[in-house]
């Protein structure tokens, strides 16, 4: 296939998926929200959940984005080393964002620093944001996509602690971020925690944690335990939907880690809001696309 056609094919397929992602939640987020709504008893919190679910239904019926803030688009690319069109990927992803911004439409959210100008089409250095990973024996392409909204990106942070701060220090960072700005990020929240050596690696790991499925646990038993401990602690604060109080406040807490230097303990934390819009799309070497994250909610 000619490379120009390849690029258009991938771009079209990704643009269609961006359109879906802005209008429907991934299955795991939707299922967990249903569960939280069922468990809630406080009348004001119930009315917020009712409104969210009406919003989810109406977004589908009226074919409109769930939230007006469709975020800055982030792609986490897992490219098979044997995928035949590696050099076409970044151009195709940019093209996809350009198309979806016009057609869906996505809100233009890319502002150039120093010029402080909105580019109007979501295309700018760093927008879309692309992170790469090469998968040695694969010939397909997997895209994890996240729409980073303003309200839910605001509480994020990365700090480097002294190792003596320990896991208590890690939890402190999370609780402070939740109670400071997290309460304005349209809770209930998804919380991704990254542990590593530097601010940058902890930050990236926290976003990877945020991308992991709700209900999945870290394979390391201690990390899985920490996920549960943080989740219980945040739920005990009783923030509830929209910080109006309520039974549960988090959809889930996921922890990802990498080795830390003996002299540092870096913690990153990333947040998603109730309308966490993320998705997974797989493209094989024949350029057939399969959506992995939205099966049930495509039937809504």
């Amino acid at each position: 296939m000619e490379n120009i056609n390849v690029r258009e094919r991938i771009a079209g397929c990704v643009a269609d998926f961006l359109n879906i992602m802005s209008k429907r939640l991934p299955d795991d987020v939707y299922d967990r929200l249903c569960e939280m709504k069922e468990a809630e008893t406080l009348p004001s919190a119930c009315s917020v959940y009712d409104c969210m679910f009406e919003n989810i239904r109406e977004a589908v019926r009226l074919d409109r984005p769930i939230c007006q803030d469709t975020g800055l688009i982030q792609f986490f690319v897992k490219a098979g080393a044997k995928f035949p069109y590696l050099s076409e990927i970044s151009g195709a992803l940019e093209q996809a964002v350009r198309i979806a911004t016009k057609k869906t439409p996505l809100r233009p959210n890319a502002v150039l620093p120093f010029d402080e100008k909105n580019t109007g089409d979501n295309i700018a250095p760093g927008s879309p944001w692309i992170e790469w990973e090469i998968v040695p024996d694969s010939d397909s392409l997997t895209l994890e996509i996240y729409m980073a909204g303003g309200g839910c990106s605001l509480p994020g942070k990365a700090v480097v602690l002294m190792p003596s701060a320990g896991y208590e220090g890690v939890c402190d960072v999370v609780l402070e971020a939740v109670c400071d700005r997290g309460i304005n990020a349209c809770p209930p929240l998804v919380i991704g925690v990254g542990i590593g050596t530097c601010a940058d690696s902890a930050g990236v790991l926290s976003k990877k944690a945020l991308l992991r499925k709700i209900g999945s646990r870290n394979p390391h038993p201690k990390a899985a335990e920490l996920e549960k401990i943080i989740k219980d602690a945040v739920n005990s604060i009783g923030i509830g939907p929209n910080a109006l109080k309520g039974k549960e406040s988090v959809l889930d807490v996921n922890v990802e880690f990498g080795a830390h230097h003996p002299a540092t303990l870096a913690v990153g934390v990333s947040f998603g809001c109730w309308a966490t819009r993320r998705g997974v799309l797989e493209i094989n070497r024949e350029l057939n696309c399969e959506i992995l994250s939205h099966k049930k909610t495509l039937e809504l």
């Binding site: 402190d172 309460i183 602690a233 005990s236 910080a243 109006l244």
Partner: peptide, 28 residues
Amino acid sequence: MIADNKKIFEERKAEQKKVLSEKLKDFH
């Protein structure tokens, strides 16, 4: 309400920090 809630959340956060400190004493 939300200003009052914020105060309550701050109090509960302080309580939870104590709970965590206890829970994580022998964590590793």
